[in-house]
């Protein structure tokens, strides 16, 4: 099906009830309607793209500035590259990204070991604060985990 652009000036009654003041975005937006012209503004200088920056396929380019925190790498990076083939409108984008995040955690632990660092996971999780401010809660949790493990252990042993 072919679609031709429509000249709305030829439409009877076009715009006769337009009311610019009826704007639910006011006062959050000082309406200029510039976006109706498209991606036409005078862009800021482009930050040199010398690392891998994934960009949404809902835009044509990398933004004028971008973060350089942690470029994609390893297996999680491969999953992220795959995810970026899909738009923000698609589960094909977000679900692989969540998966990549989980894979990345394992990569992080491996990296730590490679760099001769044993991650102190309890400290990273702030258990010192939990011990100080919520000792009973923490002990309760430990007791529950302990009880469940014991029962599981006994059940497994019985099976064997």
């Amino acid at each position: 099906m072919e679609n031709k652009p429509v000249d709305y000036n030829l439409i009877k009654g076009w715009g006769i009830d337009a009311d610019p003041k009826n704007d639910p975005t006011y006062p959050m937006k000082h309406r200029t309607n510039e976006e109706q012209k498209g991606y036409t503004w005078d862009r800021p200088t482009q930050q040199p793209i010398n690392i891998e920056v994934l960009h949404s396929n809902e835009r044509p380019n990398v933004t004028a500035v971008f973060g350089t925190s942690t470029p994609p790498s390893g297996l999680s990076g491969m999953i992220r590259r795959y995810a970026f083939q899909y738009s923000e409108n698609s589960y094909g984008h977000w679900l692989p990204l969540l998966l990549a995040d989980r894979v990345n955690v394992v990569e992080g632990i491996v990296d730590d070991f490679i760099n001769g660092k044993v991650p102190n996971i309890l400290a990273e999780k702030g258990y010192k604060a939990e011990w100080k401010h919520n000792r009973t809660g923490l002990l309760q949790k430990a007791a529950i985990v302990g009880a469940i493990s014991t029962v599981a252990f006994l059940l497994l042993r019985k099976k064997n």
Binding site: K29, T32, P44, H55, V65, F84
Partner: peptide, 22 residues
């Protein structure tokens, strides 16, 4: 500078996030 910043939608800039347009 972008159309959104110029309308004071500074939380919705179009030149600061490559990874998502939303």
């Amino acid at each position: 500078k972008c159309a959104f910043c110029k309308q004071e939608l500074y939380g919705n800039c179009h030149e600061s996030n490559s990874q998502a347009t939303a």
